[in-house]
Nucleic acid binder design. Structure first.
Length: 271
DNA sequence: ATGGGCACCTGGCTGC
DNA sequence: TGCAGCCAGGTGCCCA
């Protein structure tokens, strides 16, 4: 589900409601997430104030007085701030009960998400330590990408989704960015021209920024912190549009599978 | 090092 | 109506 824009939308939505609040207690209804919720989490978090809420890749980092809470939403997770007495629904796995009378509630049907705590520098955590640059940072430049693509035979779409090359770009925005750059998803990464790499870096940035502005993309079950869907779906050019006319040239959008993931492209606009 | 495939899970849709 | 099969915003790990 959530790629960078959806995680960032979630962060912006919940930050004003959690920053400065104290966690009174933690309710774990289902600890079996991608990694088990640590058994001592409640003891660790109770009484701690949330100092900051930041994002690294698709992880949310809750900076506490002591240590950091790491949350990943996996494919189907969402976080909402609700009145603490709201009856839990199916797949409401964890609540952080706040001193505001509200709770931060994690819902995740597929349980591919995770909720972990670390006492140390969160960026040194094994799950975060080898992550690539943020796509919206200056570090993600055409020079950088060109260097990382050189000699690689892997398809450009799969490389874009590799978190050791650039983070935050998932299945939707990889297809969309490649459309806007005019590059077919199947091209070998190492064969792109410098002009195409320039276009691709710009397209990744543009698509992610526009999606954040629209509150993310809701395909099925993504909702933001207010329980509302994102509106970027209406601005998708190729994703889940196979057979429909290209918004630029009317050629039917094509679908194919790459590494067990669906890709979409316009055979006319993308070369 | 690189690339490919599988695994983890639930739910919704399709087609027989 | 029932059920099998397939697909879905991610990503760590194992193998060649």
């Amino acid at each position: 589900m959530p790629e960078l824009p959806e995680v960032e939308t979630t962060r912006r939505g919940i930050a004003p409601l959690v920053e400065g609040r104290t966690i009174e207690r933690v309710i774990v209804r289902e600890p079996r997430l991608r990694w088990p919720v640590p058994p001592g989490l409640g003891t660790e978090l109770a009484g701690q104030q949330v100092k900051s809420l930041t994002r690294r890749a698709k992880y949310l980092l809750f900076g506490l007085e002591r240590g950091t809470l790491l949350v990943h939403l996996g494919m189907s997770g969402n976080l909402r701030v609700l009145p603490a007495d709201t009856p839990p629904r199916v797949h409401d796995h964890v609540d952080l009960v706040l001193d505001s009378g509200k709770c931060l509630r994690l819902n995740d049907p597929r349980r591919f998400g995770c909720l972990l705590w670390t006492a140390d520098d969160p960026l040194a955590h094994p799950l975060l330590s080898s992550l690539a640059p943020e796509p919206l940072s200056a570090e993600f430049s055409a020079e950088y990408l060109a260097r990382r693509m050189r000699g690689r035979s892997v398809a450009i779409k799969q490389l874009l989704m590799n978190a050791r090359v650039v983070v935050g770009v998932g299945n939707i925005y990889a297809s969309e960015a490649l459309f806007h750059a005019g590059v077919r998803p199947t091209r070998a990464a190492g064969r792109l021209t410098r002009r195409e790499i320039d276009a691709l870096v710009a397209a990744v940035r543009r698509v992610l920024r526009a999606a954040i502005r629209a509150g993310g993309t809701t395909l099925r079950d993504y909702v933001n912190a207010d329980g509302k869907p994102g509106y970027f779906r209406q601005k998708l050019y190729v994703y889940e549009r196979s057979g429909q006319p290209c918004r630029i040239c009317r050629t039917p959008i094509r679908h194919l599978a790459q590494g067990q993931r669906s890709s979409y492209f316009c055979p006319t606009c993308q070369r």
